[in-house]
Every structure is written in C-alpha cells, then in structure tokens.
Nucleic acid binder design. Sequence first.
DNA 1: CAGAATTTATCGTTTGACAATAATTTTTAT
DNA 2: ATAAAAATTATTGTCAAACGATAAATTCTG
Lengths: 73, 73
Amino acid sequence: MAIRVRLNVMLAERNVKSKDLAEYVGITEANLSLLKQGKVKGVRFDTLERICQFLNCQPGDLLRYEEDAADQG
Amino acid sequence: MAIRVRLNVMLAERNVKSKDLAEYVGITEANLSLLKQGKVKGVRFDTLERICQFLNCQPGDLLRYEEDAADQG
DNA sequence: CAGAATTTATCGTTTGACAATAATTTTTAT
DNA sequence: ATAAAAATTATTGTCAAACGATAAATTCTG
C-alpha cells in the first residue's frame, strides 16, 4: 500500500493538457510530469490547491491510498 | 480556498491520541501537532501513507480543498 | 514526416518537513 | 483545586526534495 497520484487519470478524463495545468499552477511541465508519474515524494499544499482549483476537484480525487499499482487507471 | 488538514477531526472521531499516531507514523508529537493545526506547507507521501494506514482512511478524508476556515469541524 | 505534447535528464536553489528538545498550555482525571 | 497526562508552542538545526531552468529524448497525433 502506498499513496498513488491519480493526476494522469484526472487530466485524461477532462482532456486537459499538462502544459495548461502546469502554466496555471505555476510549475514547469517537467515538474508536473514528475508529479503525474508519481515520482515525487511529497507535495506542497499550495501546489495541490492550484491543481484542485484548475481541475475543480478534491485532493481525494488526486491522491489515493491503495495497492502499489503498475498502470491501472 | 485552500487545502485544509482535517486530522484533528479524524482523531477525535476515532478517539485516537496524537501520541499514538505520532509513534506509529514515526514523527514527533510536535510535528504531528503542526500538521494537525494546518501549520505545515506540505506533506510527504510516506507520512500521509502511514497516517492513512493507522486511521484506515483515505487522503481525501484528511485533506480538503475548501474555504479557509477559522475553526469549524 | 512534421509538429505538438510529454517525459527524462542535469544541475542548482531554496523551501520546509522533520528531528530533538524543552517549556507552556490545555485537558482529563482524582 | 491539584496532579498527571496530553497537546501545543517554541527554537535551532539538518537534510531531503520540491521546484526552477534548460535541453534532449521520446511518445503522441494529424
């Protein structure tokens, strides 16, 4: 079990481009990519906040405590 | 709007002591207190994971994107 | 293929999570 | 009220890592 970042799912569902989200949040596409791929060890609340704001969702939609997964949506 | 940490609520509901959670998670009571009070700017996923594990809940139960609130539960 | 989008890779900066510790305050019995 | 327990606040310090900036490589998509 681990925290899984579901940003990729959220973006796909809403057909939002990483570039646009990155721009809105105020981080680089590179760093957003890392976050999407679950390659960061944590997140700052202001970043999380901006993402929720842009995607009009809750942290719970982006973060899940679940089985380590290879690739399922 | 901002990210709000609802740890206090979760602990109260489950009648869990901060000390016990801190011990389980592996952080000091002082730092857990800061997290509870919403006085940290972010959180590491391994910390979030342990909290979810101990409280048997999801990140969404602990983090909410909502109106900045003074003290309501 | 061409262009766009995304990911990966480096290196550097700076923030801040968390440790360790102690004192203060609040809560909970007795 | 008083003692004990629990929680908060306060300080100082360390070090991991979030994020920036940039560029190259890879993966879509038309």
